[in-house]
Amino acid sequence: MLKLNIKNETSRLRAVILGTAKSNGPVPKVEDCYDPKSRLHVLNGTYPKEEDLIVEMKAALDVFIKYGVAVYRPEVIENCNQIFSRDIAFVIDDKVIKANILPDRDREIEAIRYVWNQIESKNRIILPEECHVEGGDVMPWNDHIFIGTYSGEDYADYITARTNMDAVIAIQELFPNKTVKAFELRKSNTDPYNNALHLDCCFQPIGKDKAIIHKNGFLIENEYNWLVDFFGKGNIFEITKEEMYNMNSNIFSISEDVIISERNFTRLNAWLREQGFTVEEIPYAEVAKQEGLLRCSTMPLIRD
């Protein structure tokens, strides 16, 4: 059996599910895109090619192997985008919670059924149908759980609104001893520069007490200010709109000292090194064209 353990975003990683780009399917039609960034690349003829995505994900795999992390991969479904394993489920403490995601993506859950079956049944959680949630919006941070959400009355109009208040309440009930803090995110179906698809598209904790953040990703300034106060202004790396678009906050921690980052994130990577982090730089810019990066394509199962 797998003994899950995820208390935060940065403790030493021991086991992870890494998505796959194999048999990724054809370029989607514009009307079938789930997010504005993919839509933009379809319109511009720059949508990523499967062979390039496979190379990038192999680079991520190589870093995990270097650090002795056990890596699980989804079973390949023909012509299906299975890169973003974070969307389909997530772990908090010793529990795995199945995401209630876009109905088209339910097949992706089946592809990790062999992992799910290794987890004690009492620790496999399926939320009620009215709870919408994806793993990119959920961040365990020790005694807190940060959750990105959107509670506008026009929620149903946004294919980019993935986590609702019903899910926030359900997660609070599952973890009564933790403080669940929800943040309203800015949503757009058409403008990737003004859309925070998930919380990890505009914010992520790193190390023991630092964070990357993009102010415009948050709809409510006070909620952004709360995070700045929580981490302390001197511990925060503020990213620009362009850097958010390129997914600078969507890096991934192997430990409190080691971070996998995209090699083009020059400003961020320099700052991380100044702070004493080891930065493993890899190419991941093609993956980023689908509005996800390293955190989106990984689902941690066990950290120390």
Rank of each mutant, 00 (worst) to 15 (best):
N216D: 15
R162C: 01
E75I: 07
L127D: 04
L197T: 06
G135Y: 02
E134G: 03
A59S: 13
V16N: 06
I126M: 10
C131N: 06
E286L: 09
H132R: 15
V55S: 14
E129K: 15
C201F: 09
A99L: 02
D35F: 09
E50W: 09
E256C: 04
F84R: 05
Y34F: 14
C201W: 08
K7A: 07
F84Q: 05
S85E: 12
R107E: 09
E9Q: 04
G234L: 13
S255M: 15
N24R: 09
E108V: 01
M57T: 13
T10L: 03
N117D: 14
F265E: 06
R124Q: 05
E243I: 01
V69N: 09
V76H: 04
I254W: 06
D166L: 07
L197Q: 06
R267M: 10
R73G: 13
M165S: 15
E221A: 04
A167V: 00
G19E: 03
F146T: 00
E31Y: 03
A89F: 05
M57A: 10
S151L: 02
G148R: 01
E120S: 15
D200P: 02
Q118M: 08
L293W: 07
I88F: 03
L61P: 08
E280Q: 02
I239V: 04
S261T: 02
V16M: 03
G152L: 04
I126F: 13
